[in-house]
Amino acid sequence: MSADRRPPREPAGERPQEHPGERAPAPPRRPPWRRLLRAGRPRATRGQLLAGLLCAALGFGVVVQVRSTDSSGLDDLRESDLVRILDDTTERGDRLADELRSLEATREQLTEGSDSAQAAERAAAERATEYGLLAGTLPASGPGIVATVSDPGGAVRSTHLIQLVQELRDAGAEALQVGGTRVVASTAFADDPGGVLVGGRTEPAPYVVTAVGDPDTLSTALDIPGGVRETLRQAGAQLEVQTSEVVRVSALHALSAPQYARPASPEPSADQ
């Protein structure tokens, strides 16, 4: 008899019984919206992470630099320099307040006074004098300063004198003169081989700037830390300021006749 070679039987209970026509249950499927959300979720690469860290570090550095710049404006100044700047600011505010009160008083005289015609005439004469001083057509005298800029090395340029004039204007100078040239709003400064060209006229060194105004305020404005005195010193020039109760600005600015402007004829009123 031949041996019966049948595969060994599996123990009962270890193999699930399958019925004909039945399939194994499929694994549970995720909802479509969850699959879309997972597919659209950005995946950060190593390069993107490195770029983000660099941007964060750069932003932090910019913030630190801005804060240090904002706080270093006045923190490094001495107490005397801070007091000088405060006094200059206070004097400018007082000068503007006085001008405001004067204008308000003039307005009251013109609108409420019984002699409004005389008040208007006086106001017009005062304005004409003020405008003549501003336009440089009238000489001026009064308290002020005389600033002398020595330039042994020939390093002073027109920008230095512009800064000097601008500092004096901001400090309330009512009349200015550089050498023999009257300085007005339209005066131009330019470099010249023989010095500095002021209003079309060459002014040689040393440059003498005469200003009419409050002497203390004008001299203080030129000594502000980091201002014109420091700029001239770095250029190799020296600034000497003398205050006086009476200085005279005698140079006059010649007005040119208008080329295109003509007086306009009065427009007819609505009643005509």
Rank of each mutant, 00 (worst) to 15 (best):
residue 2 S to T: 14
residue 4 D to T: 14
residue 8 P to I: 08
residue 9 R to I: 09
residue 9 R to W: 01
residue 11 P to F: 10
residue 12 A to G: 09
residue 13 G to R: 04
residue 14 E to K: 05
residue 15 R to K: 08
residue 19 H to C: 08
residue 20 P to Q: 12
residue 21 G to V: 05
residue 22 E to M: 06
residue 25 P to I: 01
residue 27 P to L: 10
residue 32 P to V: 08
residue 32 P to T: 05
residue 37 L to S: 09
residue 38 R to C: 10
residue 40 G to T: 11
residue 40 G to Q: 12
residue 44 A to I: 10
residue 45 T to C: 02
residue 45 T to D: 08
residue 51 A to H: 04
residue 57 A to Y: 05
residue 57 A to I: 07
residue 58 L to D: 08
residue 64 V to K: 11
residue 64 V to D: 12
residue 67 R to C: 13
residue 72 S to M: 06
residue 73 G to M: 14
residue 74 L to C: 03
residue 76 D to T: 15
residue 76 D to C: 08
residue 77 L to T: 00
residue 80 S to V: 09
residue 85 I to K: 03
residue 89 T to S: 15
residue 90 T to I: 12
residue 99 E to G: 12
residue 107 R to M: 15
residue 108 E to G: 04
residue 108 E to S: 13
residue 109 Q to L: 15
residue 118 Q to E: 12
residue 119 A to P: 07
residue 123 A to R: 00
residue 124 A to E: 12
residue 129 T to C: 08
residue 129 T to L: 11
residue 130 E to M: 08
residue 132 G to A: 14
residue 132 G to N: 04
residue 133 L to F: 10
residue 134 L to Q: 11
residue 136 G to E: 02
residue 139 P to Y: 05
residue 146 V to S: 02
residue 147 A to I: 02
residue 148 T to L: 02
residue 151 D to M: 03
residue 151 D to P: 10
residue 154 G to K: 05
residue 156 V to Y: 03
residue 157 R to Q: 15
residue 160 H to M: 01
residue 163 Q to F: 12
residue 163 Q to S: 12
residue 164 L to E: 00
residue 166 Q to N: 15
residue 173 A to D: 02
residue 175 A to K: 03
residue 178 V to C: 09
residue 181 T to I: 09
residue 184 V to W: 01
residue 186 S to W: 02
residue 190 A to W: 04
residue 191 D to I: 06
residue 194 G to D: 14
residue 196 V to F: 06
residue 198 V to M: 06
residue 202 T to Q: 14
residue 206 P to H: 01
residue 207 Y to E: 04
residue 207 Y to T: 09
residue 209 V to S: 03
residue 210 T to M: 05
residue 211 A to M: 08
residue 212 V to H: 00
residue 214 D to H: 07
residue 215 P to E: 00
residue 220 T to N: 14
residue 222 L to Y: 00
residue 227 G to S: 00
residue 231 T to E: 12
residue 233 R to V: 07
residue 234 Q to S: 10
residue 234 Q to K: 12
residue 240 E to D: 15
residue 243 T to Y: 04
residue 245 E to H: 07
residue 248 R to H: 08
residue 250 S to N: 12
residue 252 L to A: 08
residue 253 H to S: 13
residue 255 L to Y: 06
residue 259 Q to Y: 01
residue 262 R to Y: 09
residue 263 P to H: 01
residue 265 S to L: 15
residue 266 P to L: 09
residue 266 P to T: 09
